[in-house]
């Protein structure tokens, strides 16, 4: 994973889940439930992405009292990056929706 300028779907889901403090397993669960099991994040991918987000200061360790379930949350920078990516994704969706409706 080189840069996080354009968030992959996995990174986007993980960041969206970390708008509130959560541990890794809770993130995995939330994504799976929200998408009815369509989108599953593997544990190795999740761990890699968490480390990457920490290194880029997009999330911080919120609570490490349970070493098995460390809790993370988005930083201000993380919120900014996520907001930017929502805008980017909205443009995509609007274009598609407009196209589909306009054809009628």
């Amino acid at each position: 994973m080189k840069s996080l300028e354009q968030l992959t779907d996995s990174v986007f889901y993980i960041m969206a889940a970390l708008t509130e403090p959560r541990h890794g397993y809770a993130v995995m669960n939330l994504v799976e439930e929200t998408t009815n099991g369509d989108f599953v994040i593997g544990p190795a991918s999740l761990y890699t992405i968490i480390k990457k987000l920490l290194a880029e200061h997009l999330i911080v360790l919120h609570d490490e009292s349970d070493s098995r379930r460390k809790v993370y949350v988005l930083t201000d920078k993380g919120r900014e990056v996520l907001t930017e990516d929502i805008k980017r994704r909205k443009v995509m969706i609007q274009l598609a929706e407009k196209g589909l409706k306009g054809g009628a």
Binding site: M1, S10, V40, A44, T48, K52
Partner: peptide
């Protein structure tokens, strides 16, 4: 069981 890597980017990292 779902694979441990679900994301090509993190597979490249591996």
């Amino acid at each position: 069981t779902q694979p441990i890597y679900s994301d090509p980017d993190s597979t490249v990292d591996k």
